[in-house]
């Protein structure tokens, strides 16, 4: 009775743009993009941003010309679409420009030895076949890992305090967290220098991690608070109505609901600190040898590696610095991808 009588009917999407029109739109966009390249090459307008702005202007003119015979509504619609799209492209352009130059200048140093050797026995101006940044990569990861281990529980718990507990100190905590997010990174470095480094009489990875944690905490706490605020009151009520205590509800209902949001909080925190240089110069300093001990003396990190070799200023030293920057970008990218994969999406 429930036969497959309709098996011959094919699903359609009449609302999607027909192929011919899509091809036409793409070719118009490609032509404008190519023309903008010509403008950049032969006039005073320069750079990727110059190209983007030319491209945006051109697209608007083209759309106005193409819709000249259409109704005013369609015209407005097409115009707004072009403005919004090209605004996105224009905002994208500087990022592309940065990324492009780091790749172009950094890829020369990407060799196996860059990831397997340190700089103990290599002078900065040696050929790129010698020496590497293993010590800096390990140092950076070690410090960010320690800083995260300190910050993520603290940050998420203070987010829980601000949204779930809502105790008497809510206002004060929120105020402190907000003003902490404005602390210049060098001040965080100085703070740890005067409290930890002078007390232990030694630069160390742990000191560096503490300075990074000071910077990371407000970002994580604020993001966690914003994310937890999005949980509908109904869900908490449902938990309470089942006889659950507040902390059980917070940890079994509220937090799992926004898992992906809290992952974002962690990502933003790591992104905030992984490229920090100034506080590390005062706390972990730098080193040319591979080290793992978090409490024993100065340790290298990618930002200080880049900073140091740029300062040396010879050809191969600068090449090493660019490669260091590229690796730093790549690490951030990999970390984010992993966090997205394993942090999971919110179940619907």
């Amino acid at each position: 009775m429930s036969s497959e009588t309709a098996a011959t009917v094919e699903p359609q999407t009449p609302w999607s743009t027909p192929r011919a029109i899509r091809i036409r739109t793409t070719s118009v966009v490609a032509l404008s993009a190519a023309f903008a390249v010509v403008v950049v090459l032969f006039t005073g307008v320069a750079g990727i941003d110059g190209w983007a702005i030319t491209f945006m202007g051109l697209s608007i003119v083209v759309v106005l010309a193409r819709t000249s015979r259409a109704g005013s509504k369609e015209r407005k619609d097409a115009l707004m679409r072009v403005i919004i799209t090209s605004a996105a492209v224009t905002a994208f352009a500087p990022w592309l420009s940065i990324f492009g130059s780091v790749i172009l200048k950094g890829y020369l140093g990407i060799r196996p030895n860059f990831f397997s050797q340190d700089m103990r026995t290599t002078t900065p101006d040696d050929f790129l076949e010698f020496g590497g940044a293993l010590h800096a990569i390990v140092g950076s990861l070690l410090m960010v890992l320690i800083a995260s281990a300190i910050t993520l529980p603290l940050g998420i718990l203070s987010g829980v305090y601000l949204t779930e507990v809502r105790g008497r100190l809510t206002f004060l905590v929120r105020f402190v967290v907000q003003s902490m997010s404005g602390v210049p990174s060098i001040v965080a470095g100085l703070f740890i220098y005067t409290t930890w480094v002078t007390a232990t009489e030694s630069f160390s990875a742990f000191a560096g991690a503490l300075a990074l944690a000071v910077l990371m905490l407000p970002t994580v706490a604020r993001t966690a608070e914003e994310v937890l605020k999005l949980v509908p009151e109904d869900l908490r009520a449902a938990g309470y109505a089942l006889g659950a205590r507040q902390w059980r509800t917070a940890f079994m209902v509220v937090i799992p609901t926004v898992r992906s949001g809290l992952t974002t909080a962690a990502i933003l925190g790591v992104a905030r600190v992984i490229g920090e240089t100034a506080p590390l110069l005062l706390t972990s300093l730098s080193n040319s040898a591979l080290r793992f001990h978090p409490f024993d003396g100065p340790i290298a990190s990618l930002p200080t590696y880049v900073f140091g070799y740029l300062q040396i200023g010879t050809e191969y030293a600068i090449a090493r610095a660019w490669t260091g920057s590229l690796v730093l970008l790549a690490i951030v990218f990999v970390l984010f991808t992993l966090a997205r994969r394993f942090g999971g999406k919110d179940k619907r």
Partner: peptide
């Protein structure tokens, strides 16, 4: 059609005109 992945077939006529015409 707002739902990602949605598809349809057939026609819906308002005053005899198909509302799914391109």
């Amino acid at each position: 059609e707002f739902i990602p992945g949605a598809a349809m077939a057939g026609s819906v006529l308002l005053h005899g005109n198909d509302i799914y015409e391109p």
